[in-house]
Design a protein around this nucleic acid. Structure first.
Lengths: 204, 204
DNA sequence: ACATAATTCGGTCGACCGACCGAATGCGGA
DNA sequence: TCCGCATTCGGTCGGTCGACCGAATTATGT
């Protein structure tokens, strides 16, 4: 039994990794269960056995990926030795990592899929809300350290930053940077702005 | 001939409007040429006659929509009686309009489609670059009126604002606002921030 | 009026999809 | 040992898709 369960989990993760690979290459609309099964090297019917449906596979994939990312992000934000600007720079580093690893493509595809699928939307929304709360927590830190956030509440800051990153990812995937829109560079600059706010606040 | 061309153009726009409607309801992956033809009340083969392929229809649809939006936006930004904060507020108004009219959904679907289709990406990219140049122009105005943009270049400001709006739209479609992320409210607040920068600058 | 070209139309073809099925296999507990 | 359950497997079914075709219809120019 234990062995059987181990085998089951193994096949599941093999399928999830394959799904990630196919999603990265072909997008959500170009993803077929046959492609995933072929990439995983298992028969087609295994997908329906383990996940019930194509949608079930997508849902499981989002949980699988988001858990990994949130773990990493939580570790970073709980490191209290970091200043705000250092955290921001680190977030930008992570964005670069996630782009080259293919995470960004997969997550954006799942977000886009959720526009048409309420079930997927529910899961993706719940996952993203974890991010917003994380950012809002840092915003509270910023409020204390920098002395106020102007007209913004912490929830609004979180929505703004989250939106800027999501939009930046979308634009990167579109290839906007190759046409002269310095998307990631602009996000990095925000770190500079935070740095000067920190300097001003510390010499106050 | 003139009559035939008029008829041809009429059928084309009928198909484009139908495509917009279907795209809004079912998303890009759920859009079939049959649905579009049925919604337009014309035979299926008309799509291939007028646009060559499904992709041709998508490309034509983007041009059709983006031309309308850019016209509106150009009119707004060329009205030199508006202050920066007024322009921002207006842009937020337009966002609300475009959400309820369905434009946002269609444009986001086309952006997502472009991640998998280089041809579509080329057209969408070119269209969005028009927007970035528009925003960069306003950023130059802001640079003069407010006296500098901190660490940001005008191109970076454009990328940041464009990304924030694109990301905000994506999050809105996801339903993030219903789960407590005040996406559009946060964008409005930026207008408040601009207002206080204007006040500070004028009393200088 | 007539020839020519543009447009519209119904019908169909081959390919691909997700889902499902029943049989075969592997494994643990009695 | 053998039973029962979880898992794996190949195969197929009904359905949808984009693309294409040839005929019919309409408009244009002479």
């Amino acid at each position: 039994m234990a062995r059987a369960l181990a085998k089951k989990a193994e096949t599941s993760t093999t399928l999830l990794e394959a799904a990630k690979k196919v999603l990265r290459q072909s997008g959500h609309s170009g993803l077929s269960t046959r492609d995933v099964a072929a990439a995983a090297g298992v028969p087609l019917s295994q997908i329906h056995y383990h996940f019930g449906s194509k949608q079930g596979l997508m849902l499981a994939l989002f949980d699988y990926l988001n858990a990994q990312l949130l773990d990493r992000q939580n570790a970073m934000f709980h490191d209290s030795t970091l200043t705000l600007s250092q955290r921001w720079d680190r977030a930008c580093d992570y964005l670069d990592e996630d782009i080259s690893s293919g995470y960004v493509r997969v997550l954006q595809e799942l977000i886009a899929a959720s526009w048409s699928d309420p079930e997927v939307a529910k899961v993706v929304r719940a996952g993203l809300m974890g991010w917003f709360e994380l950012i809002a927590g840092v915003a509270r830190q910023a409020e204390r350290e920098l002395g106020g956030l102007g007209p913004f509440s912490t929830a609004e800051i979180a929505a703004l930053i989250g939106g800027a990153f999501i939009g930046g990812e979308s634009l990167y995937l579109l290839g906007a940077e190759k046409k002269g829109a310095p998307v990631r560079q602009a996000l990095r600059r925000v770190g500079d702005a935070i740095r000067s706010a920190e300097a001003k606040s510390s010499t106050r």
